[in-house]
Design a protein around this nucleic acid. Sequence first.
DNA 1: GAATATTTGTACGTATGTATC
DNA 2: AGATACATACGTACAAATATT
Lengths: 241, 241
Amino acid sequence: MDDTADGIARWRKVADEIRAMIGAAGAGAPDRLPVETELAARFGVNRHTVRRAIAALAAEGLLRPERGRGTFVERRPDRIVYPVGARTRFTENISQNARQAAGRLIGSGRESADRHIANQLQLAPGAALVRLESLNVADGVPLSVGTSWFPADRFPRIVAAYAETGSITKALAAHGVADYARRSTRITAERVAHDDAEHLGCASDAIVIVSESANYDADGVPIQFSRSRFLADRVELVFDS
Amino acid sequence: MDDTADGIARWRKVADEIRAMIGAAGAGAPDRLPVETELAARFGVNRHTVRRAIAALAAEGLLRPERGRGTFVERRPDRIVYPVGARTRFTENISQNARQAAGRLIGSGRESADRHIANQLQLAPGAALVRLESLNVADGVPLSVGTSWFPADRFPRIVAAYAETGSITKALAAHGVADYARRSTRITAERVAHDDAEHLGCASDAIVIVSESANYDADGVPIQFSRSRFLADRVELVFDS
DNA sequence: GAATATTTGTACGTATGTATC
DNA sequence: AGATACATACGTACAAATATT
């Protein structure tokens, strides 16, 4: 299988060599790779073996192959800092780090509560909900997509209000919620869903940080359950404790 | 390239069909895939095309191919809940959710502070540090690996103390630190590093939640900076606010 | 703008290695 | 030991997107 007989696949060695190439120096570091055929010749392997190595490095976010153009070294910009606390509000938070922040409605619907959401919102399973899908953008760069569920009877016009204002806070205010807070936040991470990748304009194998939380009004009544997917490449969450 | 002429690669269609196969039902759902040659015959494509599809689904965590055995459907267990707060301590936290929790020393060393860590520990760049690598296991399942840095002059024997006790808290106590707390936690997510994957016993393309934080003693002096990598498949972090 | 060359993406074929059954 | 099943590797061809002439 590999003629080096040390049990390491060739494509892994090629990947390591490429890693060394691109990680060599900061200033003189190349920003693009030689073409696949030349790499294959240089390493004495088949083009497919080079491609296997490139695919692995691309999955790590180190390379970005573009059909017809070449394979480029990924220089990832610093991540935008997203502070999470009891009073987290997207627009206000992000505008501390970015020049422009906006939320946009990308979908909505009505559905009945499954067990998990019913529990979070302290409703009976099957209760009527409004679902709201939003895309959050800072400085023109999509950062996250979020799905929120609201009790339909209390927030009948939440979708329209959000579509107008681009702000959950304002949409809630239009329903008489002057203040709200979150209590706890569950954090997981996974590969981005297909639909989310399209909205976020990211690679189909990108990683998202998933944040689930509920918001409560001043009386402690749950008013919103949300599940946000943050692009891990572009955002870091900061929790103060 | 594909004879369907709708611009969708064949391997993607095969992936979708396999996804449908395994996601069919809860009870009667298969727990393993037919062998690659049979899938290739069934879908009328080459075995490599099937493999490309399987690789994509494996990257999503849906399949787990095992050499010589077959390709299995991944049924992921519920994640262990890991509460994060000012007084987060691994052993105490996890033992609320698991029967057994333990930390094990997997590496250590001495190094000098780079800019980032020096800043976090309020030291001059180049200051002497002790680095401690640990593997955290609950119920025999590796959950996370962590790297911690301590000022070398204040915690000269921290590695030995941790090796003996398996607890950072106790190792710090041996150096006279009765209490400590964290102030903020930075959360990112990325693909697991190669070395970490070996310790965690996970797939090489698994996702980890990366948590960076500093701990401070009762006088507010930073005593530890740590970078923990939690397997996203096995753990969820919960922050109270 | 059109034709051509370059470069990555997909697909199939074939062979062999390695782990498991 | 033999059969089975996934892993790696090379070869070939063409498609699709981009760059160049």
